[in-house]
Design a protein around this nucleic acid. Structure first.
Lengths: 103, 103
DNA sequence: CCGACGCGTCGGGAAATGTTGACGCGTCGG
DNA sequence: CCGACGCGTCAACATTTCCCGACGCGTCGG
């Protein structure tokens, strides 16, 4: 069972789950309606997201509402940051070329 | 064999490989020296990165130098972007609390 | 109090992933 | 020309991931 953020994001179902939760907390059956998957499958994907601390669960009667908890995404952002310098340099190079061609 | 960027980044070895390539192109044996893994293992990790278009290979005599190709990381950045709004809101809330406590 | 509902978890099976040793191919040095 | 080197790829195996049906537990409605 993966517990780190990068592995949690490796699965498209889990990414879509996080997308769904951007608009506010939702219950499991509700979320499962968005996929062609069984409810246990969704439950286990949510458990992976919970272990990665990307979601939090709030029991409400017999339902459990899952909330987005985006803080751990900062780790991805931090890892990504040193690479931004590179494609920024590329964009500058591209701009210079364009400036040359269309002064 | 995973071919998308998110799956490519799910493995810590592959992330470290990309980190190593930030300082310039390097050959396979050179890269393998950074890990406690056999050279074939590194070769196949590099193949995953190649399929995700995160690296490019340049044959140089009997060695192959791998270059960083950070463009596909933009997809991760784009996916991440809508979530930044959330932790920005959190930071603002935190700032407001701090302002209240230390006016 | 009892059946229906919402959900987590477990057992198991299929598929993907990670790793290694062995092999083959092209390249360099003597 | 020939052995050593650097590398990719393959077969094989262990491990992990993914998915489902079945079960059990707590909660709600009548």
């Amino acid at each position: 069972m993966p517990t780190d953020v990068f592995s949690a994001l490796a699965n498209p179902v889990r990414r879509k789950l996080l997308d769904c939760l951007r608009d506010g907390p939702r219950a499991v059956n509700d979320l499962a309606g968005e996929f062609e998957l069984s409810r246990p499958a969704i439950s286990e994907h949510l458990q992976v997201l919970r272990l990665a601390r990307l979601v939090r669960e709030e029991p409400r009667g017999r339902q459990r509402y899952y909330h987005l908890e985006p803080d751990p995404l900062a780790e991805v952002r931090q890892w990504l940051h040193p690479f931004e310098h590179y494609w920024r340099a590329r964009l500058h190079a591209l701009r210079d070329v364009l400036d040359e061609e269309n002064p």
